[in-house]
Design a protein around this nucleic acid. Structure first.
Lengths: 356, 356
DNA sequence: CTGAAAGCGCTAACAA
DNA sequence: TTGTTAGCGCTTTCAG
């Protein structure tokens, strides 16, 4: 059987409690005692039993990250950022995939596995405002992604409206007049699609450009194939435009592909900007201008806030909202290939301030 | 405080043991008792404490997956496959990133966190044969990826040599004569790069084509940027070739980009095939022919084998090797754009048998 | 078919 | 500064 604290205590000639104290960095231990214990630990190869510790202390040192799908680059990069932020606090991460399916989101959230972690980071996709009550669980919870919930839990997200507005204004500043909003969702008011559409409208209004229904293109699932299909349909319908602000990067890349197939030059004929700043946008042809949503900041904030909730004795403070800073990243799909003459030069960026 | 078995037992008017029996599907329980217990569980919202169960039973129901980097699409897709295979067995997965750094791989593998899981799936990148002894840990372990270890643990991998040979033979069957092996690593004999180079050589030899040093191109890190850089350098050196067998998909995509920048037509001037069948290869321009390594099968086999080791009382059986089946996936980068006229038609495949 | 009691390995009071 | 004791919530003998 595995070696326990008892074995260590016996070998070091101390009590089990002293071993515990050494392990937990209890301050008042004689240096000589400490080193004797440490020596015994090393000699025996002792490793604490985390289940026992968890049972006793009520803390496991693990948090859960619930995301729709790891194959989606956005969530893979989010998971990476979360894991690295968590590691800073000695936390390990259990990833659970929900598939973006409502029942599965609830199942995962309420499953017994959630009793195995100290807190949950939940990137909601399917649940809506009407499900807010279902989020009342005993485990500390921080919501990621769009602000579809009004207060049941802490929430960290990006500045969707402001970022979409900035992206659209950037295209306008390039002299574009007929800008497609690519990736809208019918009836979506408060999800990413709705918020980004709001930002798009704000930018048009501020520039005195008219909002045109026909320039708002729905894209079903925000994956590459649907992006390509939607662009194909838009072109088939005879839609004319000189720029596209896509509501995420992969639908932008799908659209770019179709535009290129049709011989439409980017950015000469049509400038394209995406959303998310996934790694691939640096290497696509052309490289894709996009909005960096502040992923690192989101991950760090989420882990920090979750930890505060975990450590907070009473759970007193009311839920809070946090928004990350964002920036427009200019690449070839809006600037042209001139920049590719210096492929090793970093992207030009437009910094924007954090709001909170 | 959370509700425990005691509370459930009290409410149902039975002993704690009976509650335990119901939860664990112990067969011999009177139906009436069972339903009474179930009712109490539902009414109280009881959920078992996994730490306590883990302490008592020695099993946590979690496994660990150690991979280099989730931002790498190959590993994200592997992680997805592993998580879905694990879910089939009611296992949850803790993902740990090693960064492909040797010290970090060892640190993660030997850290106390590993005592929190029932078994480990380890996708080794940096450790080599000389570290085989360091893999002797108490927790059941299954190695993923290349066969750099000779027997310390169970191991599941793809058929690197056979697949690279098949990919090369496929290009030869297309009439290509000067085929670049793209992604070799100096001095790599038994890692992916070395094995795939072996398959490449076998294919040339079988076809009576001469092996030429200059057609073997090193690519540093198997990421898109290094792939692009290596192709740029190859072209600058005046290298001539009519096909590329790239040792993974992202370096293939990086190379494709550079070829297109230079006005080289794919596949007319140069046919390109990659390795891994990551999702992106379906949507790139042109879509990329590749080798499907049998990821699902690898994940399912790995989880099954790990579970066998976990359940095996003595740990008796000697380590085993498992190889997944693979297949060549033909897309535009070797077939031409004709196929894109029917974008919704599935890829043509060359099935290959499983070896074990 | 069900109950009683022991103890998994650890930490938190409380003593010494 | 260190030792003793009592459980955390559960599963598992062993009786009944």
């Amino acid at each position: 059987m595995a070696v326990t604290m008892h074995d260590v205590a016996k070998r070091a000639g101390v009590s089990i409690k002293t071993v515990s104290n050494v392990i937990n960095d209890y301050p008042h231990i004689r240096e000589e005692t400490r080193s004797r214990v440490l020596e015994a630990i090393a000699a025996l190869g002792y490793q604490p039993n985390l289940s026992a510790r968890g049972l006793r202390s009520g803390r496991t040192g693990a948090i859960s990250l619930i995301i729709p799908d790891l194959k989606n680059a956005y969530f893979a990069e989010l998971a990476d950022a979360v894991m690295r932020a968590a590691a800073e606090h000695d936390l390990v991460v259990m990833i659970q995939q929900s598939g973006g399916i409502r029942d599965r989101e609830l199942e995962v959230l309420h499953g017994p596995r959630m009793r195995m972690v100290d807190g949950i980071l939940f990137s909601v996709l399917a649940l809506g405002q009407e499900d807010a009550g279902l989020l009342d669980i005993p485990t500390p919870l921080v919501l990621l992604g769009e602000r579809i919930f009004n207060g049941p839990a802490d929430h960290v997200t990006m500045q969707n409206v402001a970022a979409a507005r900035a992206a659209t204004e950037y295209l306008i500043s390039l002299g574009r007049k007929r800008i497609v909003a690519f990736g809208a969702h019918e009836d979506d008011g408060i999800g990413s699609a709705g918020l980004r559409l709001t930002g798009y409208r704000e930018a048009l209004a501020a520039a005195g450009l008219q909002y045109r229904e026909e320039l708002v293109v729905d894209v079903g699932n925000w994956n590459r194939a649907d992006g390509a299909d939607a662009m194909r349909a838009a072109l088939a319908s005879g839609l004319e435009f000189d720029a596209v602000v896509a509501f995420n990067d992969v639908i932008a890349l799908g659209a770019v592909r179709v535009l290129q197939e049709r011989g439409i030059r980017i950015p000469d004929d049509v400038a394209v900007i995406g959303f998310d700043d996934i790694d691939e946008t640096r290497y696509s042809l052309p490289s894709l201008s996009t909005v960096d949503p502040g992923r690192e900041e989101i991950a760090e904030t989420a882990v920090r806030v979750l930890l505060e909730r975990i450590n907070d004795p009473a759970g007193g403070a009311p839920p809070r909202e946090y928004e990350s800073s964002f920036r427009i990243v200019e690449r070839e799909s809006t600037l042209g290939v001139a920049s590719s003459l210096h492929p090793r030069v970093g992207p030009h960026v437009h910094p924007h301030p954090t709001s909170r």
